[in-house]
Design a protein around this nucleic acid. Structure first.
Lengths: 187, 187
DNA sequence: CAGAGCATGTAAGAGGTTACATGATTAC
DNA sequence: GTAATCATGTAACCTCTTACATGCTCTG
């Protein structure tokens, strides 16, 4: 159900074709809600049936025609109503933590190298976010309301990645401390 | 597929019945991998078929019989192999961020009160984690390897919650700054 | 002329949620 | 006696992922 609202949120920002949305869900929106193009096309069809969005076919030369979708006033109202309701907490699923939890089945070296890889990934993502911040939100306090809201989602991304990098540091340090000598347990 | 490994991780920690696992997935393991009892029973049956776990029926007086599951050596090996592979990053899905992204559709008051609610929830969870830390991991550096690994999953939980609380503070502060007067946009 | 990008879809299968179902015991 | 806890399942449904499919244009 929430995928519907994620699509509405995207369309509230700008009109999109299904294809545009799919790309959108690989950057900005995708940073906090993931979806594939298959899901998006299916959901768009349902949303149009309900009248929450309206599609208009745009003829294009040199390229396949596309269907641009926009929020209807009904869609806006539904979105506003949804926003006002208490959010469900996301069910986190973190493979790395499952692995650590059963970490005694492998040597600390295995864990350390996985954590180092992970740290690198999060550093990379952090850098991406920080570049967006520098480029689009240099003076957050002077932003109009709508932009401020979006800025805050970026801030969440940044602190999230910083947090992961910091935790990886901590974890690697602890695991290296006494477990580098081959004494503790399993191979 | 990963649910299987989450179950193996739990059974590596201790033998469990399906019922025990379901409870386990509402606390410790559940903090980073969620599953309902229906999923668990289905998966356990598959895992037993494959010989990764072995169930033994325990007759009980005064209570229904139960079937205790334990990791087999095959299961241990499969788990170790899985741990050594690079982890998939979790696809984050954060309703609150979707809401913020389209925040211009509602008044800042709505967002602020939702963020305050959320902050409270994360503070609560943080406290739970910190109590576990105090009670079970008072001296992390002296822990045996297996316990250290599990301790690190708890540390991730703690810094995750701290991070959310901090971000909520930041977001609330920014939204309160200029948007408390009824000037900016929609009702 | 190969590969990337534009643009939209179908179909099968895996994974997850919700509701229903049972039946005993223990605590208030 | 009412609710909670122990213990295990089935069935229907929804959501998500992965693979397959098409066809055109622009870039190198």
């Amino acid at each position: 159900m929430s995928l519907a609202y994620a699509i509405l949120a995207a369309l509230n920002d700008r009109e999109c074709s299904g294809y545009d949305l799919a790309k959108y869900f690989e950057e900005s929106i995708g940073y906090f809600w993931s979806a594939t193009h298959q899901q998006i096309y299916r959901e768009l069809a349902l949303l149009e049936e309900k009248g929450w969005v309206k599609g208009e076919t745009i003829a294009q030369e040199d390229r396949p025609n596309k269907k641009l979708f926009a929020l209807t006033t009904l869609g806006q109202a539904q979105m506003a109503e949804w926003i006002a309701q208490p959010s469900k907490l996301s069910k986190h699923k973190e493979e790395v933590l499952v692995k650590l939890f059963a970490g005694n089945l492998v040597s600390p070296k295995v864990l350390i190298s996985e954590l180092e890889r992970l740290r690198q990934v999060h550093r990379q993502q952090l850098q991406t976010y920080q570049e967006i911040e520098r480029e689009y939100f240099p003076m957050p306090k002077t932003l109009p309301y709508a932009a401020q809201c979006q800025y805050l989602t970026l801030r969440q991304g940044i602190s999230h990645e910083l947090n992961w990098v910091g935790w990886c540091d901590e974890a690697i340090a602890l695991l290296k401390e006494d477990n580098t000598e081959p004494n503790s347990s399993q191979p």
